[in-house]
Design a protein around this nucleic acid. Structure first.
Lengths: 189, 189
DNA sequence: CTAACTTCTTGATTTATGTCAAGCCAACAG
DNA sequence: CTGTTGGCTTGACATAAATCAAGAAGTTAG
């Protein structure tokens, strides 16, 4: 079984048999470094599951670019509320490496529960995990210093620091690139 | 129909008929100002829907108290991931005014979908809305100043500023009580 | 190979925000 | 009524982090 199927199955909690029922709903898609999977203002008609590579989620606030998240393998790539509520995307997803995705259309997504009985439950649990990640991110901004946020995130995903530009990681952590550079320098001593 | 039923129905998107099917799953509960609905370390066996009053969600980080959210009418009171995944609560919910809740046990919660066919879907949509609120909170910490965060939140919930102590609101906005006081003073001129 | 970029680092300076401390006022208890 | 307490404000000062600026190092394009 390919890695991506493992990723989907793990992330969603599907059995192999359940996945067999719906695997045709997913289309593989490749995105070249620098290209976009989703642009703000577009209707969000599909959801991506990252197999390989990294997508950067970002948006503009007061004309300034803000990196919100990096979707690596096992993560989804979608403006979730725009997808579910049929609204226009508020964010962009750009490939910062070559990326391989499995993509599912809104129509097929809505059809899953006819094939997999407990889908809505599984999907809810998946969403709850995402929710929990966001909750701890909020708390980290309420209670931690820049250096503490760096340490926390570095422990979660050390590899990303070799794969994404520092200024984008800094933005996602809510600090300037210079501050991140200095923290990192300090830590290496 | 009482206000609370309206709140639940609106928040979850239930029809009146659907709500009739499950209304017995909910128990009313009153909490006096200062008392707790949930304490960290306890297993989370129930979920609360706030009818009247305000619950403050908080936790300790490095021995410092951090206010994470205020649950007012229409909001839920629960450590969601602990509730869903049968873990111990990471947070406390304390009444900062007298509070009226409707409470549902985990057992009854799991039973809802046997009474209301599309429950898992509705519940997921509700969760997605909560997710979306959190997302914009994260972005506000990545991109906005203390004053901008104040303005954004004040527009969302101006009444809270008369009902909750400022130091707790400040904590929830990720700033010191003094900074909040100064911003507010400045705005009133 | 060289030029043009981009990314990262490092130093100097500024600024937003935190911390500490004092005092005011309203609520409340005795 | 009076003392105590908690919530809020205000000023003085400290500091984390942003900004500005220059240069080093690595990458890409011609």
């Amino acid at each position: 079984m390919s890695d991506i199927k493992k990723h989907i199955i793990e992330a969603l909690g599907l059995t192999k048999r359940e996945f067999q029922e719906i695997k045709d709903f997913f289309q593989p898609k490749e995105i070249k470094k620098g290209d976009y999977f989703l642009k703000e203002g577009q209707y969000v008609r599909q959801m991506g599951f990252v197999e390989k590579g990294i997508l950067r989620e970002f948006l503009y606030v007061n004309e300034k670019e803000v990196t919100k998240w990096f979707s690596t393998s096992g993560y989804i790539a979608v403006d979730l509320s725009a997808f579910l509520f049929d609204q226009k995307s508020k964010v962009n997803y750009q490939a910062i490496t070559d990326v391989e995705l499995l993509v599912i259309s809104k129509e097929n997504y809505n059809r899953i529960s006819t094939r997999v009985q407990r889908w809505d439950k599984l999907d809810k649990m998946f969403l709850a995990k995402c929710f929990s990640v966001l909750e701890s991110r909020v708390v980290s901004h309420l209670a931690l210093s820049a250096e503490e946020r760096y340490n926390q995130f570095f422990n979660l995903n050390p590899r990303l620091f070799n794969e994404a530009p520092l200024n984008q990681i800094a933005s996602m952590l809510g600090m300037s690139a210079e501050t991140l550079s200095r923290i990192r320098n300090k830590q290496s001593n």
